[in-house]
């Protein structure tokens, strides 16, 4: 499960921020997962719970899902990414490296692969709450 690697990144980054803000204990971490990468919140949550230690002992992880918007650079069409339209191998490739969407997905209007991933790409750390 490659979500473990992402969970480790989240904890490493959250720890750095907690240290900067001089938090003794983290109570809540808010994470945003973009639909394009199709990270499964239960798997991510499980990985986080297995790896959390010291300042995260009693932390709650809020995982928010963000829709992914793609916008064609050629004709300007914006559309919502829908992975249900993809076969399993393609969905998995995009799961590992979201940029390969440019290999498999085309603008629904003009067929161009030159689109911008406006939002909902991957995993983001949105907020950290804790006690000093």
């Amino acid at each position: 499960m490659h979500e473990w690697a992402l969970a480790e990144a989240i904890l490493t980054s959250a720890k750095q921020i907690a240290e900067q803000e001089k938090l003794k204990e983290v109570t809540e971490v808010t994470i945003k997962v973009g639909e394009l990468q199709q990270v499964e919140p239960p798997i991510l949550r499980f990985a986080l719970s297995q790896m959390k230690s010291d300042i995260f002992k009693s932390a709650k992880f809020r995982i928010l899902k963000a829709k992914s918007t793609l916008k064609c650079r050629v004709c300007g069409t914006a559309w919502q990414f829908n992975f249900k339209k993809l076969d399993k191998a393609t969905a998995e490739a995009i799961h590992f490296v979201p940029e390969v969407a440019h290999t498999y997905i085309k603008c629904p209007k003009c067929g161009s692969p030159d689109f911008e991933i406006v939002c909902g790409r991957g995993v983001w750390l949105q907020d950290i709450k804790g006690a000093k």
Partner: peptide, 9 residues
């Protein structure tokens, strides 16, 4: 929002 990936590289 922070990109958590850089921190683990």
């Amino acid at each position: 929002m922070v990109d958590p990936r850089i921190s683990v590289i």
